[in-house]
Structures are given as structure tokens and as C-alpha cells.
């Protein structure tokens, strides 16, 4: 067993452990953190498959941004676990059927290829030039329209999400930044010269 195999099995074991812990841990924060670990180890496995861009962007996008916001929400909400666990047995049967269908589909799609054919080696062009360069070249030439379309859809989704959740509260105490910037000393502060009451008399200038 060489180093590469050893690290693959290590990553795979951690990944499966983390994934199970996402489902089984009773605390939602632990579940979210396990998901982070699962993403990280998945990125490690992708890195071993020489898919460096995919691995790094998984960490950058999911671990670095999406899961941070997830954790935020989970930490802020006081989730009542007992209420979430109600009706566990009622949902069990439909859940088993759905996951059974998923599993069969996955086995049909991927299993046959992996079990019966030896996985093809990574093409030489990718290993010599680097996955990032190849991916960039393809995305910006051959698949440019699909790529731009995806970008536009994402933009629309962002705008829609903001439009759906934006509510102007009446009692908000936010001061507009224009007002803050335009404040001058004259509008806030007045220096009055007063006669000094007794004590040491000083020249006001």
C-alpha cells in the first residue's frame, strides 16, 4: 500500500464518518460542522483525482462561504429538537422508498462503470497543463453561452432573493449615510462665550 492509497482510505473513512454524523448528530450545530468536514475531505479526494480546481472551489464556495452562513442561521435559531423528531416513524417508510430509488439510480449510473471497467487514466493534456487552465479555456470558448446563461440565472436568483426578503421596517433607527457625511460642526456644535463666575479670570481668546 503506497502513500496515495493510504491517504485515499483515510479521506474516505473520514468522509463517511462525517456524513453519518451530519444525519445522526442531535445538535444542529454539530451537524453543520460535520458537513463542513465532509466537504473538506471530499475536496481532498478530488485533489487526489487531480481535479484541483473543483477541489479548491468546493472549499472556497461551500466551506468558506455557504456553510458559514448556514452556521450563522443554525446558531441564531433556537431549534427545538424534540419537535423536529416528531413523526419520525411516519416519515420513515416514504424516506426509505425515496432513498432506495436514489441508490438504485446511482448504482445504475455510476456503479456499472466503476465495477466493470477500470477507470480511465487522467488525460495527459490535463496533467501537463493543469486542470484550472483547461477548465477555464473550455468554459470561456466552447461553453461560453451556457456559462453566461448560468451566470445570468444566478444573478436573477440573487436579486429575487433580496427582493423577496427586503422589508423596510418603520421603526428602524438607521441614519442615512448622506446625512452623516453632510453633518458639519456648525449644525451640531455652538460655542458660546460666557462670563466666568468668580475664580481665576482668563482671557477668552
Amino acid at each position: 500500500m503506497n502513500f496515495e492509497n493510504l491517504s485515499f482510505y483515510l479521506f474516505a473513512a473520514v468522509l463517511i464518518g462525517a456524513a453519518l454524523s451530519v444525519i445522526f448528530s442531535r445538535n444542529p450545530v454539530h451537524a453543520a460542522l460535520s458537513l463542513v468536514l465532509a466537504f473538506f475531505t471530499a475536496a481532498g479526494i478530488w485533489l487526489m483525482l487531480e481535479a484541483e480546481f473543483l477541489a479548491i472551489s468546493l472549499i472556497l464556495v461551500y466551506v468558506g462561504a455557504v456553510m458559514v452562513l448556514f452556521l450563522f442561521v443554525v446558531m441564531m435559531l433556537d431549534i427545538n429538537l424534540n419537535r423536529m423528531r416528531e413523526g419520525y416513524w411516519n416519515y420513515l417508510l416514504p424516506a426509505l422508498i425515496v432513498s432506495g430509488i436514489f441508490l438504485t439510480e446511482l448504482i445504475v449510473l455510476i456503479g456499472g462503470r466503476v465495477m466493470f471497467n477500470k477507470p480511465a487514466d487522467v488525460p495527459a493534456a490535463i496533467t501537463s497543463e493543469g486542470n484550472t487552465l483547461q477548465l477555464g479555456r473550455l468554459l470561456y470558448t466552447e461553453y461560453l453561452y451556457a456559462f453566461e446563461l448560468a451566470a445570468v440565472i444566478l444573478l436573477v436568483a440573487i436579486v429575487a432573493a433580496i427582493a423577496l426578503t427586503l422589508r423596510r421596517r418603520k421603526d428602524m433607527k438607521l441614519v442615512s449615510s448622506n446625512e452623516q457625511f453632510s453633518a458639519s460642526r456648525e449644525s451640531r456644535l455652538k460655542i458660546v462665550s460666557m462670563p466666568v463666575e468668580g475664580g481665576r479670570r482668563e482671557d477668552p481668546s
Binding site: I56, I59, L60, G64, A65, V68, N131
Partner: peptide, 15 residues
């Protein structure tokens, strides 16, 4: 080759 991306990804985990 993806050094800059690596740095961005790793430092984004500091949070």
C-alpha cells in the same frame, strides 16, 4: 499552478 486559489480557499476557512 492554482496557488492563489489555494491561498484564497485556505484563508477562507479561518473564520
Amino acid at each position: 499552478d492554482a496557488g492563489l486559489l489555494y491561498v484564497l480557499a485556505i484563508t477562507s476557512m479561518g473564520v
